[in-house]
């Protein structure tokens, strides 16, 4: 499993180069590797199962269990899968195929950045997706408001 920074660098190269050889399989695998990091950080064995035909979606479901804020990247994962499927439907027009790959790389890049951020600070995403207080172990102000 490559480091997240290596995956980020690889995706950045693809995005900036506009034509750096890549494939939907490579980009999907990047997404899976990113989620493997997240799952492993929770001391879980990354699943090899598939959800709707994709391991990426199964990994996301595994990573979001007990952590609602991880749903903030649910649609990003689904967009990655969408672009994977979309590419299979495109004809041989190289411009269209390159544009699709470029967008898929940008989506994968968002996933690696988001997960890297969450790995550094698990609070990222709490604003939008969960109500878990950062100081969950502390006494709540509302409980001592009579004081």
């Amino acid at each position: 499993m490559r480091a997240l920074t290596e995956i980020e660098q690889r995706l950045d190269d693809i995005i900036v180069a506009h034509g750096e050889p890549t494939s939907t399989d490579e980009l999907l695998r990047c997404g899976e590797e990113v989620l493997e990091h997240w799952v492993a950080a929770k001391n879980l064995q990354p699943t090899m199962n598939k959800q709707e035909g994709f391991r990426l979606l199964a990994l996301h479901r595994q990573g979001a269990q007990g952590d609602a804020s991880f749903n903030a990247c649910r649609e990003t994962c689904r967009e990655l899968v969408y672009h994977y499927n979309l590419m299979a439907e495109l004809d041989d027009n190289p411009n269209e195929r390159n544009a699709c790959l470029q967008m898929m790389a940008l989506v994968a890049n968002h996933l690696v950045l988001f997960v890297s951020g969450k790995m550094a600070e698990a609070g990222l995403g709490d604003f939008c997706c969960s109500s878990k207080p950062l100081h969950g172990e502390n006494i709540q102000i509302s409980e001592i408001s009579d004081a």
């Binding site: 990003t76 672009h83 940008l106 989506v107 951020g117 990222l124």
Partner: peptide, 19 residues
């Protein structure tokens, strides 16, 4: 636009501006 609901990193602005 595939990133219409993706995270803008707002929660990280002060703690990790580069991210």
């Amino acid at each position: 636009f595939p990133l219409k609901t993706a995270c803008c990193g707002g929660a990280h602005t002060l703690s990790d501006s580069d991210m």
